[in-house]
Each structure stands twice: as structure tokens, then as C-alpha cells.
Simulated assay, not measured.
Amino acid sequence: MSLEKDVMTQMKAAMKAKDSTALEALRAIKGAILLAKTENSQQDLSEEEEIKIVQKLVKQRKDSAALYKEQNREDLVEPEIKQAEVIAQFLPEQLSEAEIAIKVEAIINESGAEGMKDMGKVMGLASKELAGKADGKTISIVVKNKLSK
């Protein structure tokens, strides 16, 4: 089932349950998908494009929650976190840091990277391989740790 159809199904369920937080998050996904379709003049988005859209939305919610927390706006933190959780359910299962480290180690060995000068090359390969399974910030931290040793 495509992401768009899945979101629509979930939206109907959220409307029936009168879950405004979930409904708002699902509408954000639907809006982002429609925007991406009109920008690219495409009928359907690839799975990779859908994952990128969902990752971006989750990151936006988490960043907003962190900003609100920093400004002591606890009343706004909770809805952002809940929306991020609703949106994140459309992502593939996320890898743990240990699993990411194993994959990054293999990429470093395959590419012959020898230190921080090769970080860009390793990040490019790791980002492609781990797309949707890990966020870029975590990948970057693991790559830095592995290459600085």
C-alpha cells in the first residue's frame, strides 16, 4: 500500500476517534506528499522520496519540541512529540547505534577510508545505504567516531 493511501486510512480512523493530534500530524504528511507531487509534476512518488518526506517531518517536530523546551513552553512540547511519534510510524524500523556502527565499519573497510579526510566519502555511502533506517545526525556521529580512531 502506498504511503498516501495508508495516511488516508489512518486519517479516517483518527477522525472517527476524534484524535486531533494524530489528525494534524497525518494532514501534515498528506500536505507534504501533495506538495512534492506538484513540485515534481509526478503522479506517484518513489518509496525513497516518501521516506525522505516523512523523515523531514519527524525532524521538524523534534526540532520544534527541543526549541519549545529550551524556551520553557512545556504546553507546546507534548503535542510536537506526539505528532513526531505518529509520523514516525510510517518510517522503516530504525537501526540502533550499535547496528549503525557495524554498517559504518563495513563501509569504511570497503571504501578504504583512512581518517577524517575521507569523512565526506564515507558519509555519502553510509547515507545511501542507511537511508530511512537511521537519521543523518546519528550516522555522522558514528562515522566521526570510527574515522577519528
Results as ranks from 00 to 15, higher is better:
L3A: 05
E4R: 10
D6K: 14
M8H: 13
M11E: 05
A14W: 09
A14T: 03
K16T: 08
A17S: 02
A17V: 00
A17H: 01
K18E: 09
D19V: 06
S20N: 06
S20C: 03
S20H: 02
A22M: 01
E24C: 04
A25H: 06
R27G: 15
A28E: 11
I29Y: 05
G31I: 05
A32R: 08
L45P: 07
S46F: 04
E48D: 14
E49H: 12
K52P: 08
I53R: 11
V54C: 07
L57H: 09
V58P: 15
V58K: 06
K59P: 05
Q60M: 13
R61V: 05
K62R: 15
A65H: 06
A65R: 04
A66M: 10
L67M: 15
E70M: 13
Q71K: 15
N72I: 06
R73N: 14
E74V: 09
E74R: 07
L76C: 08
V77G: 11
P79I: 06
P79R: 08
E80Y: 06
I87E: 09
A88M: 08
Q89R: 15
L91N: 08
E93K: 15
Q94V: 05
A101Q: 11
V104K: 04
A106Q: 12
I108S: 02
N109R: 14
E110G: 01
A113V: 01
E114N: 13
G115N: 03
M116V: 13
M116I: 15
G120W: 02
K121Q: 00
M123T: 00
E129P: 09
L130N: 11
A131K: 14
A134T: 11
T138E: 03
V142T: 11
V143I: 02
K144E: 01
K146S: 02
L147K: 03
